[in-house]
Design a binder for these strands. Structure first.
Length: 416
RNA sequence: GUGGACGUAGCUCAGCUGGUAGAGCACCCGGUUGUGGUCCGGGAUGUCGCGGGUUCGAGCCCCGUCGUUCACCCCA
């Protein structure tokens, strides 16, 4: 009778209790620093016009050329499930004219993203990110702040075993000059077909090849850092000096490669030590041409995307537990049908007073209800039956110490 | 997209050279009157991922498929 079992689509990440508690904690940690710095929420669609990504992210990127979930809707429009957040955020900023108001525009967002890749540890087809964008400011101090906000998020989670890689991709002139020399260098190498194809799309990608022989082959390749214009170099030096002042450790990594075409200038990546092949827990950088490319004002911008799934994996690898603040304050056990009404009322009242309350539902034995109270992790438990309804007082039991004290029902709020 | 490993109760796994399945944990009930965590007793649970093949007979062998996982590619 029962049909074939329906499973979640391949490679999606989903979180159910008890692990979802840690997910909630991790995501909150990553969002909060942005709020504390005056960034405001932007709630965006998960699907967009396909062209937004081909134009914004770049057709030469793997993300766009082979990892997008694209479909045609009923109006014959080409729609794509967002593979990243920045392009959509820029589109919304332009569409709502935020770029014509006070600058910088500082926003944060969080949600699901989609990439049709082969799943792997820390790599999912639907995954979660927290991102921020600061638009309309060239000040290197904002670069440092953006990086500091990401770092604060990881620290809030309790992560320790990660490092920050940072580099500068310079401006268009710097990159063009470097590209000529890099291509010349690459032509002198004996490469396989696939690698030649990659080099044609974006020669910088070869710096990221994990194969030992390629690492050796690229060891003497010209570095973009050596081609930076005076202006780019000064900007970058200020960014790093600010990070020094903030006590944020970083590693200059001139071979760092980012997968999205819009990056310019300062770029960075947070890498966790315990994560395996998919070790990047967050990354970002400047995208000084993106706004104009998408039809907006000629404004520079900088932002990041932090991987909630990977940060969670990192937290687990480091033994971080969800804090106790996620447990209930009180667990109420009604005894007998007449007590339930009072219990529902009481719970409503206490919750309105910001106390978290759980109720033992169902007609189960007191012993079973106590066990449920124990497992819920609630701090206190009370039983409400005939006696309590008459006396208007309850035994407030501390589940940790096992000690209980008698308090009136009216004074419960204060006792918790 | 390419390559390797794996797929047995909710979870972690065992299952000898093929003879129609087991453990631990979790879960439920109980250990006499309304208070959990330990202990004791009892209990439910599986189309052995799915489909096909070989065989008298397959969880164990073969093929396919779906999924998981690890790496490459790529990236959060």
């Amino acid at each position: 009778m029962a049909g074939v079992k329906i499973q979640a689509p391949k490679g999606v990440s989903e979180y159910v209790p008890p692990r979802s508690k840690l997910f909630e904690f991790v995501r909150e940690c990553l969002i909060n620093p942005a709020r504390m710095a005056g960034y405001q929420l932007m709630e965006l669609p998960v699907f967009e016009d396909t062209e937004l990504f081909t134009r914004g992210v770049g057709e030469s990127t793997d993300v766009v050329s082979k990892e997008m979930y694209t479909f045609t809707d009923r109006g014959d429009r080409s729609i794509t499930l967002r593979p990243e957040g920045t392009a959509g955020a820029m589109r919304a900023v332009i569409e709502h004219g935020l770029d014509r108001g006070q600058l910088p525009v500082k926003i944060w967002y969080s949600g699901a993203y989609f990439r049709a890749e082969r799943p792997q540890a820390g790599r999912y087809r639907q995954f979660y990110q927290v991102g921020i964008e600061a638009i309309g400011l060239d000040d290197p101090a904002i670069d440092a702040e953006v990086i500091a906000i990401a770092d604060a998020g990881f620290k809030a989670i309790g992560l320790k075993k990660y490092r920050l890689d940072i580099t500068s991709l310079g401006d268009a002139h710097s990159r063009a000059a470097h590209r000529v020399d890099l291509l010349k260098y690459i032509q002198g190498l004996d490469l396989d077909e696939a690698t030649v194809a990659r080099a044609a799309l974006n020669p910088l990608r070869l710096f990221d090849d994990k194969r030992e022989e390629m690492r050796k082959a690229m060891a003497a390749a010209p570095l973009l850092m050596d081609y930076l214009s005076q202006e780019s170099r000064e900007h970058f030096e200020k960014v790093t000096s600010y990070l020094d002042a903030l006590g944020i450790a970083y590693e200059l990594n001139p071979r760092m490669v980012r997968g999205l075409d819009y990056y310019t200038g300062t770029t960075f990546e947070f890498v966790h030590e315990l994560l395996g092949a998919q070790s990047g827990i967050g990354g970002g950088g400047r995208y000084d041409g993106l706004m104009a490319e998408l039809g907006g004002q000629e404004l520079s911008g900088i932002g990041f995307g932090l991987g909630v799934d990977r940060a969670l994996l990192a937290a687990e690898a480091e033994g971080v537990l969800a804090p106790e603040g996620f447990l209930s304050d009180l667990f109420i056990i009604p005894l007998g049908a007449s007590a339930m009404v009072k219990v529902l009322e009481l719970a409503q009242e206490l919750r309105a007073a910001a106390k978290s309350v759980e109720i033992a539902f169902g007609d189960r034995s007191l012993k079973a209800a106590m066990k449920a109270a124990d497992k819920s992790g609630a701090r206190y438990v009370i039983v409400i039956g005939e006696e309590e309804l008459n006396s208007k007082s309850v035994e407030l039991k501390n589940m940790n110490s096992g000690v209980s004290v008698s308090v009136t029902i009216d004074s419960l709020v204060n006792a918790l």
